[in-house]
């Protein structure tokens, strides 16, 4: 398996370089699991919220990984603020629009499909859409700030952005999604 594989691309190198960041992701994952456990009763009372947990986390992680991956490619090509920050502004704007559209659709789709899947929905249609939209927008604003910070750090310390920016952004989307979902639920009085 050694033929034509540069030393930085062997499974050992990938594993060793990934372990610290992914280990951190696991720690944060377990802590966000404790958030789930702490709000277990509320999640079981409003089952559609429990069913939305992987969706909100997953889509938050998806949009985060698009932003992270694009910013990582940009960092390979020069830096966050190269070309007057045009590329970064474009990526941040696109991420916010993607989040607003996708999270609104998520609430609407869940309201329609959940009863079909045997999950009772007690919220009004517009309230569930508002919950997912607020959760998505709050999440994205935090992630844009985070990508600036991590992008600067990886540039500063010479880390490979593909190994650092993407996992950090994805973890943030994964974890904070639960917090923003519960907070947005609180706003509409769940």
């Amino acid at each position: 398996m050694q033929a034509d594989v540069p030393p930085t691309a062997t499974w050992r190198a990938i594993t060793l370089q990934s372990l610290p960041v992914l280990g951190g992701a696991v720690v944060i994952g377990v802590l966000s699991g404790q958030i789930l456990v702490a709000f277990q009763d509320r999640l079981f009372d409003v089952p559609v919220l429990l069913a939305l947990v992987p969706a909100v986390n997953g889509i938050g992680g998806n949009v985060g990984s698009i932003l992270g991956s694009r910013v990582a490619s940009g960092l390979h090509l020069g830096g966050l603020w190269s070309n007057g920050g045009h590329g970064f502004r474009r990526d941040a704007t696109a991420s916010l629009i993607l989040a607003a559209a996708t999270f609104s659709f998520l609430g609407a789709f869940a309201h329609v499909i959940a009863p079909v899947l045997g999950i009772p929905v007690t919220l009004r249609f517009q309230d569930l859409v508002l919950v997912t939209l607020l959760a998505g927008l709050g999440l994205m604003l935090v992630m844009v700030v985070l990508v600036i910070l991590v992008g600067w750090l990886s540039h500063r310390f010479g880390w490979d952005p593909d190994n650092v920016v993407v996992p950090v952004l994805t973890t943030a989307g994964d974890t904070l999604g639960i917090v923003f979902l519960l907070a947005a639920g609180g706003v509409v009085g769940i």
């Binding site: 696991v26 944060i28 992680g61 991956s69 996992p167 973890t171 974890t175």
Partner: peptide
């Protein structure tokens, strides 16, 4: 339940950074 987000995040992170590297 406490384990679910950690395992989801772990596999998601491994897969997406692998995709990013392969890309």
């Amino acid at each position: 339940l406490a384990l679910v987000p950690a395992v989801l995040a772990m596999r998601g992170n491994i897969s997406t950074s692998m995709g990013s590297r392969l890309g």
